[in-house]
Design a protein around this nucleic acid. Sequence first.
DNA 1: CGAAAGATTGATTGCTCTCAACTTTAGTGG
DNA 2: CCACTAAAGTTGAGAGCAATCAATCTTTCG
Lengths: 232, 232
Amino acid sequence: MESKAPWGFEKKLEIFSDAFGFKDLPKDARRELSVSADSRYYKKSAVIFGPEEPCRYFYLVADGLVRVSITSTAGNRLTYLLAVRGEPLNLVGPFTGEARLMAAETLKETTLLLIDREAFTHFAFQHPRLITAIISKLGESLDSANSRILDMQEKNVDQRLGRILFTLYKKFGTTLKFTSTELAELAGTTTESSIRALSKLRQMGVIETGRRNITIVRPEAIEQSEGNAIWI
Amino acid sequence: MESKAPWGFEKKLEIFSDAFGFKDLPKDARRELSVSADSRYYKKSAVIFGPEEPCRYFYLVADGLVRVSITSTAGNRLTYLLAVRGEPLNLVGPFTGEARLMAAETLKETTLLLIDREAFTHFAFQHPRLITAIISKLGESLDSANSRILDMQEKNVDQRLGRILFTLYKKFGTTLKFTSTELAELAGTTTESSIRALSKLRQMGVIETGRRNITIVRPEAIEQSEGNAIWI
DNA sequence: CGAAAGATTGATTGCTCTCAACTTTAGTGG
DNA sequence: CCACTAAAGTTGAGAGCAATCAATCTTTCG
């Protein structure tokens, strides 16, 4: 586990050298960013930003796990992104400054790198590659969201949950530390339905389950043949 | 109806002076674009680009109506954007050049302005305002898509169709020239269910219906109180 | 006038949400 | 260290919505 102390220049540089959109930038540019970025420690279940909240910083996960989600007026939460080391939380906010629907909170102890939004956009405009990476990532997210809409329409809960598990498997490996409720918020269903779907997969020997713990035993059984990938 | 002849400089400039993301650019910049843009005429129901097709141009609607949609392997189509004069069809493609899931086809006779993708991105990188507009628009689309996922989960067909009708009303006015199938593809349901929902609204005196024709009589009856807007 | 597109209605089925009750596990304060 | 409590997991029963299948009718257009 990383310490709560502020991160030094070298450690910050290491993140940027390894992170989405930044790794391909010239070293000088990454140094520049490392200087202007502050690290901030969050304990588990801490709120990073809420919906309707104007954007002040660009956030990059340095260590830990962050859930980015939107919540409907009816109270249903849709998890949109589970961000790990090297992933940004808000690609749009820095450019507009405006509030969106999204909220971000930590699912583990987490350290973020923060860059003042104006400083970030000023930097980005000088680096077309970064802009391209941002737009490309937004495009992927859009494709992913649209695929999820189609899934809601034509796939049943079992299939949606299978897709979610496979996506998580690719991102986190065979051991998934999530509750049934968290999976439900990814699959767009209820906790009960997600438990029932997990139950079937357990009986088929595809997964093993424990409290806050799912092990993928036979990933090939839930592999998605179709294109339409989902990113989480 | 616009002619099939190529558009002259002045008419192209007029579009850019009136279009999303471009209207705030300096006049010289808009002139420059008008020179590099070609106009192209499409008849009704023509395919502009298909899925899995690499991107060669940036497209802007000069006149007409274009549907941008994705189709699942099961054959269900989800309409993602109904683009009218001044709206772009593909904000991401020009930057990545890669194929996405989307397809675009005309719903009316349509004229598009095409800009070679490299020329467009080169131009965009020189105009931060345009970049900001693009990223902002992608953010809105993402919020819209996520709202639609939540709607699929917690709203019934009647409510979803009401929201679609109200959104179309704001964009096109009281007279909507769409089939029940097209509405179904917007609301994420089947043609039959969309007809049944329309039927209820007709009986309540909210709309009047005809072949390929819906008139919104009492828009306030379907006005959405909640935030979570949808853009189409 | 024939054919295709669009609109409509009915009947049936099944999925999944909801509500409810209960068990198990982990964590915490006395 | 134990009792208590909250979180998480589990299962069952019931109800309702909407997809599906099927049949029919109307309108438009070549």
